[in-house]
Simulated scan of single mutants.
Amino acid sequence: MAYTQARDAQLPLRMSQEMKSRLQQEAKAAGRSVNAEVIYRLAKTFDGEFDLAASQEPAPTTLETMAADIAVIRQLAEALKWNMRY
């Protein structure tokens, strides 16, 4: 069953920084996003009940990654600029 944004449920999740870092490393090595890596690993625990291919979204391109990084940097710069005023 493929995932689509319109029907995806969101689940806020807390984990140790060590686990998050490991997931990030494993996701990068597999060419998946961290979200796709978590879904992939969770789906594996359900004995074939879920389609693992559905969790294998393509990894973002370098330009997409750079654009996301730039957006975060802009937000941080704006927050810093705002904080420096007061």
Rank of each mutant, 00 (worst) to 15 (best):
residue 38 V to H: 01
residue 56 Q to P: 03
residue 20 K to H: 15
residue 54 A to N: 12
residue 52 L to V: 15
residue 35 N to M: 03
residue 39 I to K: 08
residue 46 F to H: 04
residue 28 K to S: 12
residue 36 A to R: 01
residue 40 Y to I: 04
residue 31 G to E: 09
residue 34 V to C: 00
residue 30 A to R: 10
residue 38 V to K: 02
residue 47 D to L: 06
residue 48 G to K: 04
residue 29 A to E: 15
residue 25 Q to M: 10
residue 25 Q to H: 08
residue 35 N to P: 05
residue 38 V to S: 05
residue 42 L to S: 06
residue 54 A to R: 01
residue 53 A to C: 11
residue 41 R to Q: 14
residue 36 A to G: 14
residue 53 A to F: 08
residue 38 V to D: 01
residue 23 L to K: 05
residue 45 T to G: 01
residue 51 D to W: 10
residue 55 S to C: 15
residue 33 S to D: 12
residue 32 R to G: 01
residue 34 V to M: 11
residue 45 T to R: 04
residue 45 T to H: 03
residue 33 S to K: 03
residue 24 Q to D: 15
residue 45 T to A: 03
residue 44 K to G: 05
residue 23 L to N: 08
residue 17 Q to M: 11
residue 24 Q to R: 13
residue 45 T to S: 04
residue 20 K to I: 09
residue 39 I to H: 03
residue 46 F to M: 07
residue 42 L to E: 08
residue 54 A to M: 11
residue 32 R to S: 00
residue 47 D to F: 07
residue 21 S to F: 14
residue 32 R to L: 14
residue 30 A to L: 10
residue 25 Q to S: 12
residue 38 V to T: 05
residue 35 N to F: 08
residue 30 A to P: 01
residue 52 L to I: 15
residue 53 A to H: 14
residue 34 V to T: 12
residue 50 F to V: 01
residue 18 E to N: 06
residue 21 S to H: 14
residue 54 A to C: 13
residue 33 S to H: 05
residue 27 A to R: 02
residue 43 A to S: 11
residue 20 K to S: 13
residue 17 Q to F: 11
residue 37 E to L: 02
residue 22 R to A: 14
residue 47 D to M: 07
residue 44 K to D: 09
residue 40 Y to P: 00
residue 35 N to H: 06
residue 25 Q to T: 12
residue 27 A to I: 09
residue 30 A to Q: 11
residue 24 Q to Y: 12
residue 20 K to C: 14
residue 51 D to P: 14
residue 42 L to H: 02
residue 37 E to G: 00
residue 31 G to A: 11
residue 37 E to K: 00
residue 52 L to D: 15
residue 25 Q to N: 09
residue 30 A to M: 11
residue 19 M to N: 13
residue 36 A to K: 01
residue 56 Q to R: 09
residue 38 V to Q: 03
residue 21 S to T: 14
residue 33 S to F: 11
residue 47 D to V: 05
residue 47 D to K: 03
residue 31 G to F: 10
residue 44 K to N: 04
residue 39 I to P: 00
residue 34 V to S: 01
residue 17 Q to R: 09
residue 29 A to F: 10
residue 55 S to W: 00
residue 31 G to K: 02
residue 27 A to K: 02
residue 53 A to I: 13
residue 50 F to A: 00
residue 50 F to E: 00
residue 23 L to V: 15
residue 34 V to E: 05
residue 56 Q to N: 05
residue 55 S to Q: 06
residue 52 L to W: 14
residue 35 N to T: 10
residue 43 A to H: 09
residue 33 S to V: 10
